[in-house]
């Protein structure tokens, strides 16, 4: 099981993500720098961590989505390698057009940093198969730009295709239809604003995020 965490200048959840991946796989992930052009051979799972890549210049995730390593990530995603983008990683995946929609400034304009209720919508994806549809998880969010937007045709389409993985169980940031996590068409790319890697140990205050990694990485094992 080879995992990789992409590190951009300004990433700040890359170590948390590495801890989560090592805890579940027993093997430390490769930390891949944004200027690199290649991923480790035979990589099985790629994570784009949270943070403020490139200082959120231009738009959150915009510069990271055009960095050299993203070409390799896009190619790997096209081959079916699972890609998880959390928070800024989700923003990068939408900017790279690996996921639909965009993440705009929170409706209330405030940075939101708290644990929120999250409803599992799709329990059949490789990331969510250890959850039950309708189950409510408690996972922390920490973002300023988490307000998911897509036009209504796109929203209807992704809902119809079961690509909404998670929805907020409460009002959080103004996201269209309370969408908190979205899958790509093939189901191997997941972007989500909440941080599952911050809910994997009782010392974190909850372990609801652990099953996401266990599901994804066990499926791959």
């Amino acid at each position: 099981m080879k995992t990789a965490v992409i590190v951009f200048p300004g990433s700040n959840c890359d170590r948390d993500m590495a801890v989560a991946l090592e805890q579940v796989t027993g093997r430390a992930p490769s930390m891949v720098w944004h200027r690199d052009t290649d991923l480790p051979d035979g990589v099985d799972f790629i994570a784009l961590p949270g943070g403020f890549s490139y200082g959120d210049y231009l738009r959150s995730g915009a510069m990271a989505a055009r960095s050299p390593i993203l070409q390799a990530v896009t190619a790997a995603a096209a081959r079916g390698v699972p890609v998880l983008g959390v928070c800024n990683g989700f923003q990068v995946l939408t900017e790279a057009q690996l996921l639909p929609g965009a993440l705009m400034r929170n409706a209330g304009l405030n940075f939101i940093c708290r644990t929120v209720g999250l409803t599992v919508e799709n329990d059949r994806s490789l990331f969510t198969s250890a959850y039950q549809a309708g189950e409510t998880l408690n996972i922390p969010v920490a973002h300023h730009d988490g307000n998911f937007f897509a036009d209504s045709d796109t929203l209807d389409r992704i809902e119809g295709e079961g690509r909404v993985a998670f929805r907020y169980a409460e009002t959080v940031n103004g996201s269209a239809r309370n969408i908190a996590g979205v899958l790509n068409e093939a189901g191997n790319v997941l972007g989500m604003m909440p941080h599952p890697e911050r809910a994997i140990d009782v010392a974190h205050g909850g372990t609801d995020g652990l099953r996401l990694f266990e599901a994804a990485l066990r499926v791959l094992a």
């Binding site: 231009l58 738009r59 915009a62 055009r66 939408t94 900017e95 639909p100 929609g101 965009a102 705009m104 937007f149 897509a150």
Partner: peptide, 9 residues
């Protein structure tokens, strides 16, 4: 189209 604007929004 490629960078300065995000044509989704």
């Amino acid at each position: 189209a490629k960078l300065l604007a995000n044509t989704v929004i």
